[in-house]
Amino acid sequence: MGVPQKTLPIVFEGVTFAPSGVSLLGPLDFQLNAGQRTVIVGPNGAGKSLLLRLCHGLLKPTAGQIRCGDGAEAKSPEYTAVRQRQAMVFQRPILLRRSVWANALYSLKLRGIPKDQARVETTAALSLFGLEALAKRSARHLSGGEQQRLALARAWVLKPEVLFLDEPTSALDPDATVAVEAAIDQFHANGSKVVMVTHSVSQARRMADECLLLERGQIVKKGPVAEVL
């Protein structure tokens, strides 16, 4: 199958993030390439989540620019179009107060996908992540692992070129973590670039090819996982 990669690579050029004058990140100059699985590691407060949000266009850089593939800037309103080709899974997923089915269907409805096609894709995504039996349940009544899998299913239907994950398993028990990691592998297998923030060195080793070590807003090391860690 495979997804296109029009918005890759993601290139940071002199990017800083300094809301109200306090520099939290940067200046950063680096590039995220297609194909590789990237993890971002570092101590608390290093700016890992901020970096992820800058990549996804949820935050705008104070200075510098972020170019994505064909050159659209994160600063400009066109980033909306870039973001549409990406997906993000948060540490604590915000699920709509609706059924599992409605949650997975929601982003397809937003994009105006025809009803029949949306149904087929939703069904496929739920069954891929082992959620089909729960389709009619309230999303907010799921266990933590099930909620995170639903968040991944919701991302899956979008066929994202890039999947950002912000410590997706930090609140989960080992079994649920295994299931969520398996789900993330599905994205990689399907051609999505995976960019994940994690605290866990072992998870970084399992799940990534490339590693960024972030400390006090600066990238101190970047390279293959085995070298950085």
């Binding site: 949000r53 915000i94 709509l96 937003l110 994009r111 919701r154």
Partner: peptide
């Protein structure tokens, strides 16, 4: 609570109106 998640999913502010009204029903 929802703002980052909805933005990530591609919900415009206009489209967020019915979404949030329904979720706050």
């Amino acid at each position: 609570e929802y703002h980052e998640q909805l933005t990530s999913l591609g919900t415009s502010r206009l489209r967020a109106i019915p979404t949030l009204l329904w979720d706050g029903r």
